[in-house]
Design a protein around this nucleic acid. Structure first.
Length: 802
DNA sequence: AGCACGCCGACT
DNA sequence: GTCGGCGTGCTC
């Protein structure tokens, strides 16, 4: 039997399968989708079996060294999906398959020297070798780099050998259990009433006191005050038995989740769920866009759709933007489906993710709630995929493979002939356009549950405030309403899409702006550690006391970040209790949830934060939402700037007045006439859609055209320009007439981490060869050794131009 | 990606 | 004469 295997080398020249013999003893066992270890040249590498066959064109096949999995970790569906996805995203097969599995299953490699002829090993080197005779190559490199050559020549002379080890990062958590093995011996030892082995006897009497069975070692040790060696001694005598059992880490241990029953649906929700249930009923693949205003009860629609899928004995995936951001969502799923739910998100440790994932593989769960990568959950009888907040940019992975969870889900929906549900209060233009064209089924939830009104939104032009003498960052209206809220013991959410303290520093005398020396981007001032930080490469420097350019001391901070707002709040509303949530306050594990829980328990009056408080939060006492700088995103060099602004304003506004109390929203900004701000304040998605579609059509952007993007980066500007020009001329002679090429031009961020960035953009409707041309370009420059510092990224369906 | 193999310049 | 620099091409 022969296995076609992709090996763990992310490189174009080995982006294919290699054939290996399956040793006879494993022929019954081997299956496509299993991980294996194979010899590859002089090395040992991990790989995936993609196919089993009877013959090969290659002579002199090597044997598979080891099969790593008792069951395939990639289903046949995922193997097929990977083939498609690798082509679609211009990624290598191995990278794509690895993206489908938890990080814990990726191999790590280590090289060792081993002693072959002890007698030939010089004394000064022999002392470095541990007893078992293996010395890590890396250790030599680190500790004794000047001895490396000596080691290598010993390898040549046959005194030493080099061996390669493949390690699995996966750590199955094991827990020890203890049980009585021989009751008679135990009783005997207990009768020996000596001072000796007092602890051993304590352990035995504890075990004999309990009904026969396996007990947690930890419990027994704590109960008796004995230590592990004591019990091990008993095991040696054959009196007790110690067993290790695998257990799952439970990230939600000790949490009390209230069980919930399906709620009666409103007429609105019943209408919305109808097409979904219809697809489920008929095992049909449809993509259904649920456009529901904030607070319209989309989640309940999801939950009941999933219930219908489970009732048919099928499985469900629900994707959410970044689940650690919404513990509420997890609770709602666990509350409804209990232990049938696995949760996969970035807040979990590598081991926790691995455990949750194995529950899916072993069919111990039938519902998965998770972020982007959960789209690959290895279900075999998938009945629905729901993508909540479909418009979110985090569904697109920004490194290889650059996949979009929506595309992956729709592929799987076709494969399993099951519905894909996209839900959003502010659908992406792409999705809504497809729904209007009839490619997706449109399902609208037009009003909030219990007919709560949409919050009343007021736009405040901060230029007017300034004219009337208010120089603070809070308008008079917002200030009054925050005070009012405090009086009534209601809560406020304040949103500002910028962390740190000030966005940039400027010299008032010469106009100098502090910029990152490695990136073309201004530095952000962080007050807590008195530093200027680059949000792109992490560069930090201390604040200059004088202008580095003209030595003037008139340095001013401009732009406001969450830190500064927090400080200002303490001054103007000292009685208000404020919780600040941004990357800086939530970096520690669990801090996110802790802050939200505190706000939920009304331990604070004001929740101040960035993007991360924009969605999914549902607090009954929140009656006021203040958006401090609504127009900051508007002027970014991004064709989605208006769309993103509209989405964000709508999402944030939606946090207000979701229950009995009515909500109010204040939007502050300078460019307040802009249509995305005006229409968001009127909760008018449809007008926004119409208007924005016109501008997209006019400028030939998605969804009218796809965007192909080639970015060239090089430490030397001219090299980057040169490469991009060559690529552009290569492409321009091949592109069809309908396509438009822009560039080469500098990227919106012209330099990151000391690399200059140039790009070529292709707007196209149908260009089936474009992917191949991109690959040809990459291949061409890979061969060109004069360009070895050149990096190229290629994308067929770019979401942003940054 | 690594690694071996192979072909040219600077030393014992 | 050999050691070692890195350019080239292969890995079932």
């Amino acid at each position: 039997m022969i296995a076609a295997i992709v090996v763990d080398v992310p490189s174009g020249s080995v982006n294919k399968t290699f054939d290996y013999k399956v040793p006879e003893q494993w022929e019954k066992w081997a299956e496509p989708g299993m991980r294996v270890i194979v010899p590859f040249g002089p090395r040992k590498l991990q790989g995936f079996i993609l196919e089993l066959k009877n013959s090969s064109d290659v002579k002199g096949l090597k044997n598979i060294i080891e099969i790593l999995d008792p069951l395939p970790v990639l289903t046949s569906e995922l193997i097929e999906l990977g083939q498609w996805l690798a082509g679609h995203t211009l990624s290598f097969y191995i990278t794509t398959y690895q993206a489908m599995l938890p990080a814990a299953m990726k191999a790590t490699y280590e090289k060792f020297f081993v002693v072959l002829k002890q007698e030939n090993l010089p004394e000064h080197l022999a002392v470095s070798f541990p007893r078992h005779g293996e010395l890590s190559f890396n250790e030599v490199m680190k500790e004794f780099p000047d001895q490396l050559n000596e080691y290598l020549s010993l390898v040549k002379s046959g005194t030493l050998d080099v061996i390669y080890k493949v390690k699995d990062k996966a750590n199955k958590k094991k827990v020890k259990f203890v049980s009585i093995l021989n009751k008679e011996l135990a009783a005997e030892l207990l009768k020996e009433n000596q001072k000796k082995a007092e602890k051993q006897r304590a352990v035995l009497s504890e075990l004999l006191y309990r009904p026969p069975g396996d007990y947690l070692m930890q419990d027994i040790l704590v109960e008796t005050g004995a230590s592990l060696p004591t019990v091990q001694a008993l095991a040696k005598k054959g009196i007790v038995q110690i067993e290790e059992k695998e257990v799952y880490r439970d990230p939600y241990k000790g949490r009390n989740i209230k069980q919930s029953e399906p709620l009666p649906l409103t007429d609105n929700q019943l209408d919305a769920i109808k097409p979904i249930l219809n697809s489920i009923e008929n095992d049909q693949h449809d993509t259904i866009l649920v456009h529901g205003v904030t607070g319209s009860g989309k989640t309940e629609v999801y939950l009941q759709s999933i219930q219908a899928v489970l009732d048919k004995g099928k499985e469900a995936i629900c994707l959410v933007p970044e689940i650690s951001l919404t513990p509420m969502m997890v609770n709602r799923f666990k509350g409804r489906f209990g232990s049938r739910v696995a949760v996969l998100h970035s807040g979990l440790s590598v081991g926790e993710k691995y455990d949750e994932w194995r529950k899916i593989l072993r069919k111990e769960v039938s519902v998965v709630v998770g972020a982007r990568s959960a789209a690959f959950a290895p279900f075999t009888n998938l009945g629905i995929v729901i993508i909540d907040e479909e418009h979110e940019s985090s569904y697109k992975q920004e490194d290889h493979p650059r996949y979009h969870a929506r595309d992956v889900s729709i592929w799987r929906g076709k494969y399993h002939s099951c519905p894909i549900v996209l839900g959003s209060a502010t659908p992406s233009l792409e999705a809504y356009a497809r729904a209007k064209k009839g490619r997706y089924i449109l399902s609208e939830l037009k009003s909030r549950v219990h007919s709560n009104p949409m919050p009343e939104v007021k736009i405040v032009d901060m230029r007017e405030e300034l004219k009337s003498g208010n120089r603070s960052m809070f308008s008079n209206d917002l200030m009054e309403m925050m005070k009012d809220g405090l009086k009534k013991r209601e809560q406020t959410v304040l949103f500002l899409n910028r962390r740190g303290y000030a966005s940039f520093i400027l010299c008032r005398d010469c106009g100098y702006v502090a910029e990152c020396p490695h990136c073309d981007i201004s530095l952000t001032y962080h007050k807590r550690n008195a530093a200027l930080k680059c949000h792109y490469c992490g560069y930090q420097e201390t604040i200059p006391s004088a202008c580095p350019s003209c030595a003037s001391e008139h340095i001013r901070f401009f732009g406001t970040g969450t830190q500064k707002v927090e400080e200002e709040l303490a001054k103007v509303l000292p009685e208000a209790r404020v919780i600040r949530m941004d990357v800086d306050t939530t970096s520690k594990k669990g801090s996110h949830e802790r802050l939200l829980t505190a706000f939920e328990k009304e331990e604070a009056d004001i929740l101040l934060g960035t993007q991360m408080i924009a969605k999914g939060l549902d607090f009954p006492k929140v009656t006021l939402v203040g958006i401090l700088a609504a127009d900051t995103m508007l002027h970014l060099p991004d064709f989605r700037a208006s769309e993103k602004t509209f989405q964000l304003l709508t999402q944030v506004s939606g946090r207000a007045g979701r229950h009995e109390l009515e909500g109010k929203v204040i939007i502050q900004g300078y460019d307040t006439e802009h249509y995305s701000i005006q229409l968001a304040s009127q909760h008018d998605y449809h007008s926004f859609y119409d208007y924005e579609m016109k501008t997209r059509k006019l400028h030939q952007y998605p969804p009218f055209f796809y965007l192909g993007l080639l970015t060239f980066s090089h430490p030397d500007l001219m090299q980057a320009v040169d490469a991009s020009e060559k690529a552009a001329s290569f492409l321009s002679s091949r592109l069809s007439e309908q396509s438009i090429m822009l560039g080469p031009v500098t990227s919106p961020i012209a330099r990151i981490k000391d690399r200059y960035r140039y790009q070529v953009m292709i707007k196209y409707k149908n260009e089936p060869e474009l992917g191949n041309w991109f690959e040809e370009i990459i291949f061409h420059f890979q061969k060109d050794k004069s360009m070895k510092d050149l990096q190229i990224t290629a994308e067929l369906n770019a979401q942003t131009l940054m």
